[in-house]
Structures are given as structure tokens and as C-alpha cells.
């Protein structure tokens, strides 16, 4: 019994491994391109998985298709165009810059600019508020003399000198 369990455990990793499809590449560069392409192409059936990651039948079909096209010597942009022609721009994890995606690409910069403007406005306002409050506190200060008072003070000092 123990022997059987041992054999079973030996087979287990092999059977798990066989569920992953294996591809033979002619060189490492092609393998790298395959990895990159399946990483950047999104599985049309799944909401947020790339071809590399997904176990759905359609993802495995598309992986095969990418592999086939690589073997046939197509370049990356041809493969991407092939997928977009069939499944639309949904399959691109890096969407192209066009009218529909301007907000996507440039929106964050716009928000940063708006943020900077708001911060500048708030800080400017605060600065102005503090200066006005300084002025007002000065005018309320008991040591501050009105023109009448300072004239009287001058008179008093002058009479004092003359004595």
C-alpha cells in the first residue's frame, strides 16, 4: 500500500504538468516574443486575464494561433493586428492612442494639472488671508497710535524738552 502511494505521488506532479500546454520554439528570442505577446493580449472571454494566464478554451486557441503565427514568421504587429481584426481593441492590454482613448491616456495628467492649480489657488488664498489678518491685528494693537494721538504725543514730548 505504501508502495502504491509512493508511486502515485511520483506520478502526480507529472499529470499536473501535462495540463499546461507546451510549445517548442526554434530559439530563445521567439520564446521571449511568445511570452511577451501572450502577456499583452487579453483573453476575450475573461474580464481581466491575459492569454498567458487564462485556462479558458478560447485563450488556449488564441495561444495556439499566436504560436502558429510566430512559427510562420509573422512579426509582432501582424499578430496583434490579426487579433484586433477579430476581437477588437478589447484584446489589447496596452490600448492604442486614438480619439476614444485620449481620456484614458491623458486624463491622469489632466487631473494632476487640475490638482496643482487647486493647490496653488488654496495656498495663495491662505497667504493673502494671513497677511490681511496681520494688518488687522496691527490696527487693533494698543500700541498703534492714530494721527491725533501721535500729534499729542509729539506736543507732550516737545513741551517736556522746552522745560
Amino acid at each position: 500500500m505504501r508502495y502504491f502511494i509512493a508511486v502515485f505521488l511520483l506520478i502526480l506532479p507529472v499529470s499536473v504538468w501535462s495540463a499546461i500546454d507546451t510549445y517548442e520554439f526554434k530559439d530563445d528570442a521567439t520564446r521571449e516574443r511568445f511570452k511577451q505577446l501572450t502577456f499583452e493580449l487579453r483573453c476575450p472571454k475573461c474580464q481581466n486575464q491575459n492569454l498567458q494566464d487564462s485556462n479558458s478554451p478560447i485563450a488556449s486557441d488564441l495561444r495556439n494561433e499566436v504560436y502558429k503565427m510566430l512559427q510562420e514568421g509573422n512579426d509582432d504587429s501582424e499578430i496583434v493586428d490579426f487579433m484586433v481584426a477579430r476581437y477588437g481593441e478589447f484584446v489589447l492590454y496596452r490600448p492604442p492612442v486614438n480619439k476614444a482613448t485620449y481620456v484614458l491616456w491623458y486624463g491622469p495628467f489632466g487631473l494632476v494639472v487640475i490638482g496643482i492649480i487647486v493647490v496653488l489657488m488654496v495656498s495663495k488664498k491662505r497667504k493673502r488671508n494671513t497677511t490681511t489678518s496681520e494688518v488687522s491685528s496691527e490696527s487693533n494693537d494698543e500700541t498703534h497710535l492714530s494721527s491725533d494721538e501721535s500729534e499729542r504725543l509729539k506736543d507732550l514730548l516737545d513741551t517736556g524738552k522746552n522745560k
Binding site: P44, K45, I58, D61, L62, E65, R86, Y87, G88
Partner: peptide, 12 residues
């Protein structure tokens, strides 16, 4: 083989 399906963009 799903070849027409692929060309049509069938995903399910």
C-alpha cells in the same frame, strides 16, 4: 476546429 469561429471573433 473553430477556424471560422476564430475569424468571426467568436469567444463563447
Amino acid at each position: 476546429e473553430g477556424s471560422l469561429g476564430l475569424d468571426l471573433g467568436v469567444y463563447g
